[in-house]
Amino acid sequence: MFTYILYGLAGGGLILSFIKDRQKTKKSLIKAWKAFENIMPQFLAVLVVIGLALAILSPETITKLLGNESGVWGLLFTSVLGAVTLIPAFVAFPLAAALLHSGAGYMQIAAFVSSLTMVGVITMPLEIKTFGKKATLLRNAFAFVFSLISALIIGVIFK
């Protein structure tokens, strides 16, 4: 259902855009294709990793490591993992979904997604060039604490 709505939105948007400005529509399609092709190598690699991991690890093991019972350690593990990795959200969501369906907890997955998108340890040198050291460290620290709080709230709601 949701997928159909997405196709409807994209189709409608394209038609509207085409009527208003053909050149811009062409540009946006090229941009869309480039962005799509850009994530493909990582995207496909992660899909194979998910397949292998889920074939080897039993849902029980995943539940034990990242499930609701994993508590604070599971939460800290996933949020630190999200903070130090540099993968596009488009690549991370299939991974998060697969883990969730195999027994990981909502709280742990939310921590991973939030810290992945808001905290960037690896990209800090780039950030420092724009914001300076103090602001960069502060922003990442606030964002990390926030992703923990956000995950805790989600953990309570989805219990």
Binding site: L6, Y7, L9, S17, K24, T25, K27, S28, A32, F90
Partner: peptide
């Protein structure tokens, strides 16, 4: 799922 999402992404980016 991805094709319409990337079309939206392109449209937003240009407009």
């Amino acid at each position: 799922i991805l094709p319409p999402i990337f079309i939206l992404l392109g449209l937003l980016d240009v407009w």
